[in-house]
Measured scan of single mutants.
Amino acid sequence: GEDLPLPPGWSVDWTMRGRKYYIDHNTNTTHWSHPLESGPSSG
């Protein structure tokens, strides 16, 4: 998808195989999909 801006506290990194993933430092979790690309989340 597009390179959307990341929310505060997020960063992007790549695996050893070159796969892009996103790090949420607020909750110390990692995600394969961009936080703003996922569907609407409630709460």
Results as ranks from 00 to 15, higher is better:
residue 18 G to N: 04
residue 18 G to E: 03
residue 37 E to K: 12
residue 14 W to V: 15
residue 27 T to H: 04
residue 39 G to I: 11
residue 10 W to D: 00
residue 22 Y to T: 01
residue 16 M to T: 15
residue 22 Y to Q: 00
residue 30 T to W: 13
residue 7 P to L: 02
residue 7 P to R: 00
residue 37 E to W: 13
residue 12 V to M: 09
residue 26 N to Y: 07
residue 32 W to I: 03
residue 8 P to S: 07
residue 26 N to M: 07
residue 12 V to D: 05
residue 41 S to A: 13
residue 10 W to A: 00
residue 3 D to V: 09
residue 20 K to P: 08
residue 34 H to Y: 06
residue 11 S to C: 15
residue 8 P to K: 06
residue 38 S to M: 11
residue 26 N to Q: 07
residue 4 L to A: 13
residue 42 S to Q: 12
residue 31 H to A: 04
residue 34 H to E: 02
residue 6 L to R: 14
residue 1 G to K: 11
residue 2 E to P: 09
residue 1 G to S: 11
residue 33 S to G: 08
residue 36 L to Q: 05
residue 30 T to P: 04
residue 41 S to T: 11
residue 28 N to T: 05
residue 7 P to H: 00
residue 6 L to W: 01
residue 28 N to R: 07
residue 30 T to S: 08
residue 15 T to Q: 03
residue 30 T to H: 11
residue 27 T to D: 03
residue 38 S to Q: 12
residue 11 S to G: 06
residue 14 W to N: 08
residue 15 T to I: 04
residue 19 R to A: 10
residue 22 Y to H: 00
residue 24 D to H: 04
residue 19 R to Y: 13
residue 38 S to A: 12
residue 24 D to K: 02
residue 36 L to G: 08
residue 37 E to H: 08
residue 37 E to D: 10
residue 28 N to H: 09
residue 15 T to E: 06
residue 21 Y to T: 02
residue 5 P to A: 13
residue 5 P to K: 07
residue 3 D to L: 08
residue 38 S to W: 10
residue 4 L to I: 09
residue 27 T to L: 03
residue 11 S to I: 05
residue 22 Y to F: 08
residue 8 P to A: 07
residue 33 S to Q: 13
residue 26 N to L: 07
residue 2 E to R: 09
residue 41 S to M: 09
residue 42 S to I: 11
residue 23 I to K: 04
residue 43 G to F: 10
residue 27 T to E: 02
residue 38 S to Y: 11
residue 7 P to E: 01
residue 28 N to E: 07
residue 1 G to I: 10
residue 23 I to P: 00
residue 9 G to Y: 02
residue 10 W to H: 00
residue 20 K to I: 11
residue 27 T to M: 04
residue 9 G to E: 01
residue 22 Y to E: 01
residue 7 P to Y: 00
residue 9 G to T: 00
residue 24 D to G: 01
residue 27 T to I: 01
residue 12 V to K: 04
residue 10 W to G: 00
residue 31 H to G: 01
residue 35 P to G: 01
residue 22 Y to W: 08
residue 20 K to F: 04
residue 29 T to E: 06
residue 6 L to T: 01
residue 19 R to P: 02
residue 29 T to D: 03
residue 36 L to F: 10
residue 3 D to S: 10
residue 17 R to S: 15
residue 19 R to L: 11
residue 27 T to W: 02
residue 5 P to M: 08
residue 11 S to A: 08
residue 24 D to T: 01
residue 21 Y to R: 05
residue 4 L to N: 12
residue 40 P to N: 10
residue 41 S to G: 12
residue 18 G to H: 04
residue 39 G to S: 10
residue 16 M to I: 14
residue 11 S to E: 12
residue 17 R to G: 15
residue 42 S to G: 13
residue 30 T to N: 08
residue 22 Y to D: 01
residue 14 W to K: 12
residue 31 H to M: 04
residue 29 T to S: 07
residue 14 W to P: 07
residue 9 G to S: 02
residue 18 G to R: 03
residue 34 H to P: 06
residue 28 N to Q: 08
residue 4 L to M: 11
residue 19 R to N: 09
residue 26 N to K: 06
residue 23 I to G: 01
residue 36 L to P: 05
residue 37 E to G: 11
residue 39 G to L: 13
residue 31 H to D: 01
residue 10 W to F: 01
residue 21 Y to D: 02
residue 15 T to Y: 05
residue 35 P to R: 01
residue 34 H to R: 05
residue 32 W to F: 07
residue 39 G to A: 14
residue 34 H to L: 09
residue 20 K to H: 04
residue 12 V to Y: 12
residue 24 D to Y: 01
residue 32 W to G: 03
residue 32 W to M: 05
residue 15 T to R: 01
residue 35 P to Y: 03
residue 32 W to T: 05
residue 41 S to R: 11
residue 7 P to N: 00
residue 20 K to Q: 06
residue 33 S to T: 14
residue 9 G to W: 05
residue 31 H to I: 03
residue 23 I to A: 01
residue 2 E to Y: 10
residue 14 W to F: 15
residue 4 L to Q: 09
residue 4 L to P: 15
residue 29 T to V: 05
residue 30 T to K: 13
residue 38 S to P: 12
residue 14 W to H: 13
residue 21 Y to Q: 03
residue 18 G to T: 01
residue 39 G to N: 12
residue 2 E to F: 09
residue 34 H to A: 05
residue 35 P to S: 03
residue 40 P to Q: 13
residue 33 S to E: 12
residue 39 G to P: 14
residue 14 W to M: 12
residue 21 Y to P: 01
residue 22 Y to P: 00
residue 43 G to E: 11
residue 24 D to V: 03
residue 10 W to E: 00
residue 16 M to D: 15
residue 41 S to E: 10
residue 16 M to C: 15
residue 33 S to W: 11
residue 12 V to C: 14
residue 32 W to E: 04
residue 38 S to H: 09
residue 12 V to R: 04
residue 20 K to N: 01
residue 9 G to M: 02
residue 15 T to F: 04
residue 25 H to Q: 07
residue 29 T to I: 05
residue 7 P to S: 00
residue 18 G to I: 04
residue 42 S to V: 14
residue 11 S to K: 06
residue 40 P to C: 15
residue 41 S to W: 07
residue 13 D to T: 07
residue 10 W to P: 00
residue 25 H to L: 06
residue 5 P to N: 13
residue 26 N to S: 08
residue 31 H to P: 00
residue 43 G to N: 12
residue 20 K to T: 05
residue 35 P to W: 03
residue 12 V to F: 14
residue 4 L to G: 14
residue 29 T to K: 06
residue 13 D to W: 12
residue 2 E to A: 10
residue 2 E to W: 08
residue 13 D to G: 15
residue 6 L to K: 11
residue 41 S to K: 12
residue 16 M to S: 15
residue 10 W to T: 00
residue 7 P to A: 01
residue 37 E to I: 12
residue 3 D to I: 10
residue 43 G to I: 10
residue 30 T to F: 14
residue 32 W to L: 05
residue 14 W to A: 08
residue 1 G to E: 10
residue 24 D to A: 02
residue 17 R to C: 15
residue 29 T to N: 03
residue 4 L to K: 09
residue 8 P to M: 06
residue 18 G to S: 02
residue 42 S to L: 12
residue 25 H to Y: 07
residue 8 P to W: 05
residue 16 M to G: 15
residue 11 S to P: 01
residue 17 R to W: 14
residue 34 H to K: 02
residue 21 Y to I: 10
residue 25 H to D: 04
residue 12 V to L: 07
residue 28 N to D: 07
residue 6 L to Y: 02
residue 13 D to P: 00
residue 25 H to M: 07
residue 29 T to H: 04
residue 16 M to L: 11
residue 39 G to Q: 12
residue 2 E to K: 11
residue 30 T to R: 13
residue 6 L to V: 06
residue 28 N to I: 02
residue 29 T to R: 06
residue 24 D to I: 00
residue 2 E to G: 09
residue 41 S to C: 14
residue 7 P to G: 01
residue 25 H to P: 02
residue 21 Y to A: 03
residue 35 P to A: 02
residue 36 L to R: 06
residue 17 R to K: 14
residue 8 P to D: 08
residue 39 G to H: 10
residue 21 Y to K: 05
residue 12 V to H: 06
residue 2 E to Q: 10
residue 28 N to L: 05
residue 30 T to A: 09
residue 37 E to R: 10
residue 40 P to F: 11
residue 25 H to E: 06
residue 13 D to V: 09
residue 1 G to A: 12
residue 38 S to N: 12
residue 12 V to Q: 07
residue 43 G to L: 12
residue 9 G to I: 00
residue 35 P to N: 02
residue 12 V to A: 06
residue 22 Y to R: 00
residue 21 Y to V: 07
residue 9 G to A: 00
residue 35 P to L: 01
residue 11 S to T: 13
residue 19 R to V: 14
residue 12 V to S: 05
residue 35 P to M: 02
residue 7 P to D: 00
residue 18 G to K: 02
residue 21 Y to E: 01
residue 12 V to E: 09
residue 19 R to H: 15
residue 16 M to H: 14
residue 35 P to K: 03
residue 38 S to R: 12
residue 43 G to A: 11
residue 18 G to M: 04
residue 33 S to I: 13
residue 33 S to M: 11
residue 35 P to V: 03
residue 19 R to G: 07
residue 10 W to Q: 00
residue 1 G to T: 11
residue 23 I to V: 09
residue 8 P to I: 05
residue 21 Y to L: 06
residue 5 P to S: 12
residue 32 W to D: 04
residue 15 T to D: 15
residue 33 S to A: 09
residue 4 L to S: 12
residue 40 P to S: 13
residue 17 R to L: 15
residue 31 H to N: 03
residue 36 L to V: 06
residue 33 S to P: 02
residue 13 D to C: 15
residue 24 D to L: 02
residue 9 G to H: 03
residue 40 P to V: 13
residue 37 E to Y: 11
residue 42 S to H: 12
residue 34 H to W: 05
residue 24 D to S: 02
residue 14 W to Y: 15
residue 11 S to Y: 04
residue 3 D to W: 08
residue 14 W to Q: 12
residue 40 P to I: 11
residue 17 R to E: 15
residue 30 T to D: 03
residue 11 S to F: 04
residue 23 I to M: 05
residue 43 G to H: 10
residue 36 L to D: 06
residue 18 G to Q: 03
residue 11 S to R: 05
residue 38 S to K: 13
residue 18 G to W: 05
residue 36 L to K: 06
residue 33 S to F: 14
residue 1 G to C: 15
residue 19 R to K: 14
residue 26 N to W: 05
residue 37 E to V: 13
residue 43 G to Q: 11
residue 37 E to N: 09
residue 39 G to Y: 10
residue 5 P to Q: 10
residue 43 G to P: 11
residue 13 D to L: 09
residue 29 T to Y: 02
residue 29 T to P: 00
residue 6 L to N: 01
residue 1 G to F: 10
residue 19 R to M: 11
residue 16 M to V: 15
residue 30 T to Q: 07
residue 35 P to H: 02
residue 29 T to Q: 07
residue 2 E to L: 09
residue 6 L to H: 02
residue 24 D to Q: 02
residue 34 H to F: 06
residue 21 Y to G: 03
residue 24 D to W: 02
residue 16 M to E: 15
residue 15 T to M: 03
residue 3 D to R: 08
residue 37 E to M: 14
residue 43 G to T: 13
residue 12 V to N: 02
residue 41 S to F: 06
residue 21 Y to M: 07
residue 15 T to A: 03
residue 38 S to F: 09
residue 3 D to M: 08
residue 40 P to G: 14
residue 33 S to N: 14
residue 29 T to A: 02
residue 14 W to R: 11
residue 25 H to K: 06
residue 15 T to N: 10
residue 20 K to D: 03
residue 42 S to A: 12
